[in-house]
Amino acid sequence: MSDLLRPGAHRAAGIADDPAVLAAILRVEVAWARALVAAGIATDAEASKVAEAAAGLDVDLPALAVAAEAAGNPVVPLVELLRTAAGDASGAVHRGLTSQDVVDTALVLLARAAVARVRADLVATGDALASLARTHRDDVAVARTLTQWAVPTTFGLRAAQWLAGVGDAVGALDGLTFPLQYGGAAGTRALLGHLAGPGGAAAAGALAQTLGLTGPDLPWHTRRGTLTAIGDALTTTTDALGVVAADVLLLGRPEVGEVREGAVAGRGGSSTMPHKQNPVLSVLVHAAAQQAPGLAAQLHLSASGAVDERPDGAWHAEWPVLARLLELAVTAASQAAELVAGLQVDTSAMAARVDAATATAALDARGGTGEAGRLVDIAITRWEETRG
């Protein structure tokens, strides 16, 4: 996919691109070779040779991508390369696994790293929003409902509501689990059971421990809740950030002028109108929020089509969708953290608009906002409990 059509994609470099996927797959294969030692199927020397072979493997990624078509996934040709490189330790490569075990576990590793990145940026965003809410706790502004002026509110409460959304997103991310996938060819773990008997369970436990993943009681080849939950949590994230961006876009219009993005040299210019300073970060975060729900929906659609013991196409359809969603969420979270940190608030413009609204609607410009301060305090307290 072209980075030229994904402004800001460099912020997610290494999250789910081909080098990252390759590294995750090799990490799983190396960890599995070591796990076979725990099951008594491989020796320490063999596992070490597999690790050395993986570390020194020179993979032509475009060629591997072409070779992946013949098997329907990249694991098969990569395992062939790794077995060749491992020499007399080749028997410790991939033994007892299936391609889906490796791809799913690799995707979980990538997702866990991406979620950690997103959470860190959400915490930075939330802290900045909490500061805005405190600073502008009592600064009166016009509330808008159904696009029209309503009763007065405060900018502090508006920022507190943004903060609550970010807190909900952090909570969704914190509720995720990252399980190992291990079922073998048809979800029965038959080969390892045949080779190691009851000791085969030790291999799964060792693999989970090495990778820092949860060891599931059952394979989840056709139960895709792990990935749909990740997709849903990331979409909750982009939803929350999208609201912030959409409000900033509205409030930053010249005819409103209540907020504006911080100026950064070289950012926001127009190709034909040099006088313009476009709110680029808000635009891009808003764009991410428009894309994420469709990607999450595709994960659910794929989950519903995961038939038999191993899916025929529904599983394959998940890979690019999840990769894109990971990159999108990481990018948007990074952009949102920068956006909120640099957000400039014009309380004078807000006050003037409150006066205009009061004259138009005969409202009490200063009345009715006393409860807003208490709501700001509640939101900040909730945030402090959530962020940890």
Rank of each mutant, 00 (worst) to 15 (best):
G14Q: 02
P19T: 02
V30D: 02
R34Q: 15
G40S: 09
I41T: 10
A42V: 03
T43F: 01
L57Y: 04
L64I: 03
V76N: 09
L78P: 04
L82D: 00
S90R: 14
V93C: 03
D101M: 09
V102Q: 07
R112F: 07
A116S: 12
A120D: 13
G126S: 05
A133F: 00
T145D: 00
P152Q: 11
T153H: 03
G156R: 04
Q161T: 14
Q161D: 14
L173Y: 05
T177I: 12
L180S: 08
A196L: 03
A196E: 06
A202W: 07
T210Y: 01
L211H: 11
T214K: 12
L218C: 10
A233R: 00
A233W: 00
T236Q: 12
T236E: 12
A245N: 04
L251R: 08
G252I: 06
G262W: 00
S271E: 10
P274C: 11
P274M: 12
H275R: 10
Q277E: 13
P279W: 08
V280F: 04
V285N: 02
H286I: 08
G294Y: 12
A297D: 15
V307M: 14
E309F: 06
G313W: 09
E318A: 02
E318N: 07
A323K: 11
A329M: 07
V330I: 08
A332K: 05
A332S: 14
A332P: 10
S334T: 15
T347I: 04
S348N: 14
A352R: 14
A359V: 06
A361Q: 15
T369I: 15
R374H: 15
V376R: 01
D377K: 08
I378F: 12
I378V: 15
T386W: 09
